[in-house]
């Protein structure tokens, strides 16, 4: 199998680390070679963050380059648009519709682009957009946005719910497991 590429993008502090951990666990358990790459340090602080998850028979590069991503999972709408050039022409964007103003917007030096979902679609991307924050709150915590997104992502994967659940058990603390499972289910069925 040739290498598949999933990019997880968002704003530092939104919880993408748990999402990549879950994916890494799931893919490794199911026999793939896996590489997960993230950047720590300065960019954690409210900046744009990106995590690369790659899997296949044999994975070399730890990063995903422009035009290579099969799926972009985005925690924030503007970040989905920012990384769209990394998407394959037939690739898919799974995104939270939540918006977080970056500093140039806060200071008034720039404005937050409008109608981003429509613009991404007209640029050729398949976009699956949903309000993950509300679903996360419904599941029990605004921090569960990552599991809502993973639930949504699971619709486009061959893995069974049992396989996802097994991976979840390995990476989520026991006391939060039920809440995360609920968030995952809400993301999937919505």
């Amino acid at each position: 199998m040739s290498t598949k590429n999933i990019m997880i993008v968002g704003v530092g502090g939104q919880g993408s680390l748990l999402a990549s951990k879950l994916l890494g666990q799931l893919l490794l358990k199911n026999g793939y070679d896996v590489k997960v790459s993230e950047v720590h340090g300065m960019s954690q602080r409210g900046g744009s963050v990106v995590t690369y998850v790659r899997y296949g028979d044999k994975v070399y590069s730890p990063i995903i380059d422009k035009g290579e991503a099969d799926v972009i999972v985005s925690f924030e709408l503007l970040e989905a648009a920012r990384y769209m050039e990394y998407l394959k022409p037939e690739g898919r964007i799974v995104t939270n519709t939540q918006t977080i103003d970056p500093m140039p917007v806060i200071t008034g030096a720039a404005s937050y682009p409008e109608n981003l979902v429509e613009k991404m679609q007209s640029a050729g991307a398949q976009v699956d957009a949903m309000d993950c924050l509300s679903l996360a709150v419904e599941a029990g915590s605004p921090k569960a946005v990552n599991m809502v997104l993973m639930g949504r992502l699971s619709k486009y994967f061959e893995f069974t719910d049992a396989q996802w659940e097994e991976a979840m058990q390995a990476v989520v603390p026991a006391k939060f497991l039920e809440m995360n499972k609920k968030a995952f289910a809400l993301g999937k069925q919505q």
Binding site: A81, R82, M84, L87, K119
Partner: peptide, 20 residues
Amino acid sequence: KAPEGLAFNEEIPVRPPIMC
């Protein structure tokens, strides 16, 4: 040859790291 991705034809405001 390197692959080509989709282009988003609008300027996107940068999101630099900031004080929390």
